[in-house]
Design a protein around this nucleic acid. Structure first.
Lengths: 338, 338
DNA sequence: TGTCACTACGCAATCGTTTGCATGAGAGTA
DNA sequence: TACTCTCATGCAAACGATTGCGTAGTGACA
């Protein structure tokens, strides 16, 4: 393997001390412009490339951050993409740690910092997990810079970037409200998942804000999938006074619900309007096309990197929390606003 | 930030030299067992965690490898998963570099090694790209350990792990042959892509091996998508003597082709048998379910890591090339073998 | 001409490890 | 007792950078 060009090589070639080279490369004052230029030119000429690793050892940044994801499924990709893209812009490199792969062993998150000297960590979480939660507490105690993605642990506890489920759901409910709907139901995902709980809460608060009353009969629960939604929708349709609009906590559920509605011989959106959450590709192609909320996951990933950099540069700040709103995408399943 | 526990701390506590600690931790001979035990116990007690970064600086491994992917789309996920999983087993961490994100800048692959001291690199490529190709040549010249994934550059040039398109396609064609088909067509993907070219070549060679004749009229080209396949299939169906079986270079194309066949009023597999390539999830659910070749992408990723470790540990070996065969999955679209 | 303040650079320690070489203690031998 | 030899450990350099401190050299000023 060819040896790396180091500042020593540059120093030797120019007959100066390595400290001079280092200072020139880092644009220190108190250096003759001519020296600076000489060093910079020689560095370029020799194809010098600083070692972030060595820089890290001597107190600066390694330009590496750890990204911990729950799994490596397609639905975590947008976050990874957002993080990676933001990293590139900052000339950072992300290390990937899907925690389902690490969970069988006792890998403390804090060890990742010790082992690989990452500048900070991004923890993307979806469901509550006792071990993860403990690890995160560990990180707080060790005072390691980290940002929690998409999981809200309670105000002021950890630096967080997430999708603001409340504001997002409100957008959808308010949209249905403006369309004249007064009896709005919900088919909700698993309450053990963060999104499940938050979206349900958001639904109830939205109704309250709009001075609607909450009707238990218009509520369905279950997994975030089509089958559940289909069955729950059938139940809701069987009550005496049907709701005129249904909000579903995921697009898949919305599609399941739509099938149940059609099977019952009802029209969407004329008899019942439907709105989902996520903006999956399929939503554009179903008939009628699905009104939904686009979760800004790439933006969340990018924002998390930005926040992490902020925390690294300015330690000791109070906890920051960002909630990014989903974008309401109105299509046929909810009908036109007047 | 809490300071890291280092071998110095252990040494201080035990009143020994750091070199003794280091040797104990690395299980050197010429050390009293009692000393070794003392060090190990204290290390555990103090929660010592070695810094791979510092180890890297002093000549050992950083336990980091760089994974370069073409994009971050769902279809590259299996490889990432395979790589990550294999890394975990070796206590390595992968750094992620999607090269569509880096391509606007002049980021030499070799610089990644200099900057972050990665032990080696994995380059996952799909389409031919002049810049990438040049970078790879650079890596060869710099003698950096690296493995090329899923792109064949020619025998004996670089260490490669890929899906063996020839053996895989042959499996499918041979399957159709055993079912009694003699007139077999192909709808093929973009020839500028590696898979497109190789699968087409493999198709022709397979026919030759089985002593069938190659018929230009049974060949369709185009993008790896449904629409293309639909149109190309229509063309093929319009010739005087139809083929009795169609091999498609991707499942998406197969699904497009199936639609064209049905629209023409023909039965699958009775009038025309269909086989695809990739084993996408949808293939199980279409009617009739799709016979296909499961690309072992996770295995390819894992194998690539294994090969890379081998190259790192034993430098100077001749180039190694592994081709992993896809698994034939027979479903309804091709009919039953007798 | 002596003093002072700057400028521009060198020296050496440091980060956390590894490792070649030196060295002290004890054991074995003559 | 004096001489090796081996074992167990210490010392210090090295990896590639950064940085506090020390110090020649220069010019201004009295």
């Amino acid at each position: 393997m060819k040896p790396k060009v180091t500042i020593k090589d540059i120093a030797a070639k120019l007959n100066v001390n390595i400290s001079t080279v280092s200072r020139a490369l880092n644009d220190f004052p108190n250096l003759k412009d001519s020296t600076k230029k000489k060093v910079l030119d020689t560095a370029k000429e020799m194809n010098y490339c600083p070692s972030h690793i060595a820089q890290g050892l001597s107190g600066k940044s390694t330009r590496v951050l750890a990204l911990i994801t729950p799994t490596l499924d397609p639905h975590v990709l947008p976050v990874i993409r957002g993080v990676t893209d933001a990293c590139r812009k900052m000339r950072y490199a992300p290390m990937l740690f899907p925690n389902d792969y690490w969970s069988d062993e006792t890998v403390a998150f804090a060890d990742i910092k010790d082992k690989w000297m990452v500048d900070g960590m991004l923890i993307y979480n979806i469901v509550y997990h006792k071990k993860i939660s403990k690890e995160v507490t560990g990180l707080k105690n060790e005072e390691i810079p980290f940002v929690y993605i998409n999981k809200y642990l309670g105000a002021g506890i950890v630096n967080t970037v997430s999708v603001d489920n409340f504001k997002s759901v409100y957008k959808a409910i308010n949209h249905l409200h403006k369309l004249g709907h007064k009896k709005i139901g919900i088919i909700n995902g698993n309450l053990t998942s963060n999104d499940g709980r938050e979206r349900f809460d958001a639904f109830k608060k939205s109704l309250k804000n709009l001075k609607f009353k909450y009707n238990e009969q218009y509520v369905g629960y279950g997994e975030f999938d089509k089958i559940t939604a289909y069955n729950e929708m059938r139940k809701i349709l069987s009550v005496r006074t049907r709701p005129t609009a249904i909000f579903c906590s995921s697009d898949l559920m919305a599609i399941g619900a739509m099938k149940a509605i059609r099977d019952k011989g009802l029209q969407i959106p004329d008899d019942i309007a439907v709105a989902g959450f996520d903006d999956i590709a399929l939503g554009r192609y179903v008939k009628p096309s699905l009104t939904t909320l686009r979760t800004p996951l790439e933006e969340v990933g990018a924002k998390a990197v930005e926040l992490l950099m902020d925390i690294i540069k300015n330690p000791g700040q109070p906890v920051k929390e960002f909630g990014l709103e989903a974008e309401l995408i109105t299509r046929q399943s909810s009908g036109k606003e007047k």
